[in-house]
């Protein structure tokens, strides 16, 4: 019951928005811009043809591959940069220079290096995800309360134990926040990347629908699906924050 009450306002808001949209399209007698009903029909068409799942699957695969690669490289690198001062002073300027370059700006180079297959968008996703992961992880190490490191020192534990039982658990909540931010950016970027280079995916669906006969019902359908998938991805990441391993960070 409480859950329904929590979701209800946002559902009402969405319904209101759809109603305004519908009324505007009818009022302006637009021939190109679709009504909500036409968008739903377009989605139903995609489901019937079976292409919807292919597009979603292709986009998710690229995001998954690029994102996991970014975590696999960004987390260890961030831990290293956070722990070893020399690593930080050497690599941080480079990270800070590369970070603000939009992955979109890399598209020409990505095509040059990796062609128009799956590798290009995976590379772009990787670029968009790896920097927030590195920065967030290194910052997490820097902000570990000194008293914990001092206590570990006092007990004379090995370096391995210090890392596994103090440093990593202490930084884990920050790493998860970094992963959530990265995945959000990754989803944003995959759609943009697919608009330019490929033959499948939600970005391709949108651009192809417009180019092949101004199917704006499919364009808007694609946008709605991107939004909903993004919401689902974010809620999966939020679930990670509720793991017992990081529960201490959010208690009290």
């Amino acid at each position: 019951m409480g859950k329904v009450r929590q979701v209800l306002p946002s559902l009402v808001m969405a319904a209101l928005l759809v109603a305004v949209w519908w009324a505007l399209v009818v009022e302006t007698r637009s021939v190109i811009f679709p009504t909500p009903a036409q968008v739903v029909m377009a989605m139903a068409d995609l489901v019937r043809q079976g292409t919807l799942w292919d597009h979603i699957g292709a986009s998710l695969f690229r995001v998954g591959a690029g994102f996991l690669l970014a975590v696999a490289i960004g987390v260890p690198l961030g831990l290293w940069m956070g722990w070893v001062k020399g690593a930080f002073t050497t690599l941080n300027p480079l990270v800070q220079i590369l970070r603000p370059i939009s992955p979109i700006a890399w598209i020409p180079l990505a095509i040059l290096w990796f062609g128009v297959g799956d590798l290009s968008p995976i590379f772009l996703i990787f670029l968009s995800s790896v920097f927030p992961t590195i920065v967030q992880t290194a910052d997490g190490v820097h902000t570990i309360d000194r008293k914990y490191i001092q206590a570990a020192d006092n007990f004379g534990v090995t370096r391995a134990k210090l890392f596994l039982q103090v440093v990593i658990p202490a930084v884990l909540p920050q790493i998860i926040v970094g992963m959530r931010v990265s995945l959000g950016v990754a989803w944003l970027v995959v759609v943009a990347a697919e608009m330019i280079a490929l033959r499948s995916g939600l970005g391709y669906l949108i651009i192809d629908s417009r180019n092949a006969g101004n199917r704006y019902d499919l364009v808007v359908a694609g946008m709605v699906i991107i939004g909903i998938t993004g919401l689902l991805l974010d809620s999966v990441m939020r679930r990670l924050e509720r793991l017992k391993l990081v529960g201490w960070r959010y208690a009290r």
């Binding site: 008293k147 206590a151 006092n154 103090v166 202490a170 391993l245 201490w248």
Partner: peptide
């Protein structure tokens, strides 16, 4: 480890 410090803020690992 033969000389352990207990401090005011406490350093019990919350995780």
């Amino acid at each position: 480890p033969k000389r352990i410090v207990i401090s005011q803020q406490g350093s019990v690992f919350p995780w």
